[in-house]
Design a protein around this nucleic acid. Structure first.
Length: 903
DNA sequence: GTGCTCACG
DNA sequence: ACGTACGTGAGCACG
């Protein structure tokens, strides 16, 4: 090729194969109508990549047709033993075919032939014409036989996310074979997935060796007598199998196709048609990526609305008065915070959506005002700030928590927000990971909104556009909040989560903002001293490791560590990961007796985790001026309703090992004479389980305030309290954990290091005694299947579409989730409720004490010495009575000079 | 960006 | 053809 001539490019996709691979590679997603979409999504991503990277001039997707092909008539067992196509996949094929139409891509199938025969025929013709390049996309290695000067094969690896490009040169390098010899290879080694027998006992290695020596399958068979030993015997005994296998693996390249190249010409897709299909599938991210979020909306009957024009006003000093006049009619607000962390992010500005005043019959269009923060903090905007701080208003926002924190750092205390579309979106689907404002608009059928990434860029590419563009975009956001509000309120009502929203989550957002803004004091000197101690100890452990291993290497690299342990030192391989040897603590503990280096490595791991995450990581988050850290609780991340904590995460500060627990000494009160007070729920999850299962024995355990693990051991082993030894209690405790997590014999066997069978017997014994718990587990799984979701005591909801999956693993996971979520989620409801109530009570009683942290079942406060006893009583009282259950809630309270002592 | 490892409840 | 306990976040190595 001289580079002047523009060659045609034909892309051929093995449709069934790619759909299968996508189906198994991606989690079983479904859209809100219950249609499974994972294979379609994977396929779509593949199509987009091909269109973009290959720029095909011709395009075809080939499918298999009919049940029987000519191969079946020659060999009855062809593809025998293959699992039936799961229903979740077969329902996707018709939709996929429609989508291909919208993409403008030709598809083809022919009764009696498989996709690879169609593709084989087309590549043969292309070879003969010799004027276009062809790319074949498949996961089927057999197709490598089609490679030629003109034809390359993109073989998908690891599902569909990666492809490996095979041309004849690459095949030569990798296998030492010419493309056509792939057929001989298959003839010798067979293919389990197609039930092609090959020669028993001959795998890829042996087959390649034979081919390198003899060149072709026929030659191998002819020379069977000169092949030594068992192998020679096997070859001789299976001559016919081998010939038939080669025959089956040979792609038929003479399919009677009646089509012209012109029919395969690809000229791109129609935006509106594609957008409509993608929207029905709810592929929001793809719509956004293609810039189609707004395309074709006018044509859409249901779902998305046409945008009502919103006038946007970039407020300068001269327009402030107009906004002030309109403040009573502001219905939605948007505060733009730059960056993920509101404790460091600047406030760019705020947009105010003002409802239009009806003018006779006409409904007036709304107006949005954007106030850059430079103006908002100015004297000129004092009335606007006062409005933000006022209690009584009816205004909606996206992410009141983040806005409150960011504004508070700027001296503005946001109050009186009455609705939050982020929080509402989270309650409606707590597993939604795209709860951005533009994601919500597309999910709930509102006019499309550009994504932040489109407007601002991302990461290093972040760049503010012009003031006018910022103003328009943020006004659009305020309008989106306004439109979403009515819709989400309605949805909350339908799902019976209004109370949960208004009485729990929304007030909690303010409680969290206050806690975080206050921050917790860190004794930096103490932390640095601990870091120095760790450094010294790490240094000497490193020396011991290098000495013991006989070489230096990066201990932090699992790859290098694996090479040292399992190759250089020849230790037994216990467990493998996807990418190599596993070296996690469980493995190392098993290896400890074999070599002294292993103990050192375990030690090193413990200390280096403390050093990097907890000493260095924490120091980076401490504010220079105040010596405090301000975590950011995330209220819309965890699928169960729990909070999560970031920058830094203060919910995973070490406690189990003394070495790590010392870190807690650096968390101290912010004022002299104050104390750290901690209050944690005792066994809250098992108490919740007792309540929702109404299991008599479990309720009795808590009503009599017994040690629940001892009680479980007594009942399961059928012994008296005195007869329960430490080991029995330990096992009972593991069973209780298992129950809360959604029990499986496998999981329990791993945890207790016993056989699966023994674990199964344990579980059976447990259920024999705790019959109410068994009934709960059965009922909740059934309920999840019937309703599609499970709920907590306060009606928090989680959808579990995979509960109906045909794939055992997916379904089992969903079943365990169905058992666990109501328990973990109700515990989350309870402590959140306690936080809201406690903050109210502290305010009402006018104490100085402050809430600092929440760690799932524990609250941490700082209190002046003189309030210590009052607060201990108050916190315990509020927490224990936050929600009335049929068993008592119990709280343990402690206090000290720091977080280490308060426990 | 992804995978591994490990900290917490 | 995915071999599992439930829910998180952070640091590091590596491509």
């Amino acid at each position: 090729m001289n580079g002047v001539l523009l060659l045609s490019k034909l892309v051929l996709i093995d449709g069934n194969n790619i759909a299968y691979r996508a189906f198994f590679a991606l989690p079983l997603l479904s859209n809100s109508k219950g249609l499974h979409t994972n294979a379609i999504l994977g396929f779509t991503q593949m199509l987009l990549r091909l269109i973009q990277e290959e720029k095909p001039t011709h395009f075809l997707v080939a499918f298999d047709a009919g049940k029987a092909t000519f191969r079946h008539s020659n060999y009855a067992d062809y593809k025998g033993g293959r699992e039936k196509t799961p229903g979740e996949l077969s329902e996707q094929f018709p939709v996929l075919k429609e989508l291909l139409e919208s993409f403008g891509i030709k598809q083809f199938q022919l009764e009696g032939y498989e996709a690879d025969d169609i593709i084989g025929t087309l590549t043969r013709i292309a070879d003969e014409k010799n004027d276009m390049d062809v790319l074949v996309v498949t996961g089927d290695k057999d197709m490598l036989q089609l490679a030629s000067d003109r034809v390359s094969i993109a073989l998908s690896r690891k599902g569909i996310s990666e492809v490996e490009l095979h041309d004849p040169a690459y095949i030569g390098e990798k296998y030492g074979l010419k493309p056509l010899q792939i057929i001989d290879l298959k003839g010798l080694m067979g293919d389990a997935s197609d039930n092609i027998p090959g020669i028993p006992g001959v795998g890829e290695k042996t087959a390649l060796k034979l081919l390198h020596e003899y060149g072709s399958l026929e030659n191998v068979l002819e020379n069977a007598s000169s092949i030594k030993g068992k192998l020679g015997e096997k070859v001789a005994a299976h001559v016919e199998d081998a010939k038939m296998s080669k025959d089956l693996a040979t792609i038929y390249r003479e399919v009677p196709l009646e089509m012209t190249w012109d029919e395969l010409a690809y000229s791109g897709y129609d935006d509106d048609a594609l957008a409509e299909k993608l929207r029905k599938l709810e592929f929001k991210q793809i719509l956004e990526r293609l810039g189609l979020s707004g395309a074709g909306l006018a044509a859409e009957g249901e779902g998305a609305q046409a945008a009502v024009a919103v006038e946007s006003v970039l407020v300068g000093p001269d327009q402030v008065n107009a906004l002030v006049q309109a403040l009573p009619r502001v219905k939605a607000l948007h505060v733009e915070v730059i960056g993920e962390n509101p404790h460091v992010g600047e406030v760019l500005g705020a947009a105010f959506l003002v409802e239009g005043e009806p003018d006779g019959e006409e409904e007036a269009a709304p107006t949005a005002y954007y106030v850059p923060f430079s103006l908002l903090k100015d004297e000129a905007a004092a009335e606007v700030r006062a409005w933000l701080e006022s209690e009584d208003k009816s205004v909606s926002i996206y992410d009141v928590h983040k806005a409150s924190v960011a504004l508070s750092w700027q001296g503005v205390e946001l109050r009186g927000v009455s609705f939050d579309v982020l929080l509402a979106g989270y309650l409606l689907d707590p597993t939604d990971t795209t709860l951005t404002l533009s994601g919500l608009t597309s999910r709930y059928g509102m006019p499309a909104l550009k994504s932040d990434e489109d407007v601002f860029g991302k990461g290093a590419k972040f760049k503010l556009p012009s003031d006018g563009a910022v103003s328009d975009f943020l006004c659009d956001k305020a309008a989106a909040v306004y439109r979403l509000t009515a819709k989400l309120q309605e949805e909350l009502e339908k799902s019976e989560m209004q109370k949960l929203f208004h009485e729990l989550e929304l007030p909690l957002a303010t409680v969290l903002a206050n806690m975080e803004r206050k921050g917790i004091k860190v004794d930096v000197e103490e932390l640095k001293a601990y870091g120095a101690e760790l450094s010294g100890r790490l240094e000497s452990i490193m020396a011991a490791i290098y000495d013991s291993a006989g070489m230096e290497f990066n201990i932090n690299s699992p790859k290098q560590l694996g090479e040292v342990l399992f190759e250089k030192l020849q230790l037994p391989v216990v467990k493998k990961t996807k990418t190599g040897y596993s070296t996690d603590a469980e493995v190392l503990e098993k290896l400890e007796p074999f070599h002294p280096v292993v103990g050192h490595i375990l030690n090193y791991r413990t200390l280096s985790k403390l050093q990097s995450t907890y000493v260095e990581g924490l120091l980076k988050e401490v504010r220079q001026d105040t010596g405090k850290v301000h975590t950011y609780y995330r209220q819309t991340i965890a699928a169960t309703g729990r909070l999560s904590s970031q920058y830094p995460n203060l919910q995973n500060i070490p406690i189990r090992l003394e070495e790590g627990r010392k870190i807690r000494k650096v968390f101290v009160p912010s004022q002299p004479g104050w104390r750290i007070l901690t209050a944690d729920y005792s066994q809250i999850e098992l108490r919740v389980l007792a309540h929702i299962s109404q299991d008599e024995r479990l309720m009795e355990a808590f009503r009599e305030d017994m040690d629940v693990h001892t009680k479980t051991a007594m009942d399961v082993f059928g012994v008296s309290e005195d007869a329960v030894d430490a080991n029995m209690r330990r096992q009972a405790k593991a069973v209780n954990f298992g129950i809360v997590y959604g029990i499986s014999d496998y999981g329990l066997s791993q945890n207790l290091n016993i056989t699966r069978k023994d674990a199964g017997r344990f579980i059976e014994q447990y259920f024999a005694v705790f019959g109410g718990v068994r009934k709960y587990m059965d009922d909740i799984v059934k309920k999840a299947r019937d309703d599609g979701y499970v709920t907590t005591l306060l009606q928090r909801r989680r959808y579990l579409p995979e509960i109906k999956a045909s794939n055992f693993n997916l379904r089992s996971f969903a079943e365990r989730t169905a058992m666990n979520t109501p328990i973990q989620g109700t515990a989350a409801d309870i402590i959140k409720l306690a936080m809201v109530q406690l903050e109210e009570r502290m305010e009402r009683e006018g104490v100085k004490s402050r809430l600092l942290l929440q760690v799932h079942d524990e609250l941490v406060l700082e209190v002046p010495e003189e309030e210590l006893e009052t607060m201990k009583a108050m916190v315990a009282d509020v927490m224990e009575n936050a929600l009335k259950l049929d068993v008592p809630l119990k709280v343990d309270v402690d206090s000290g000079e720091n977080w280490y002592e308060a426990k």
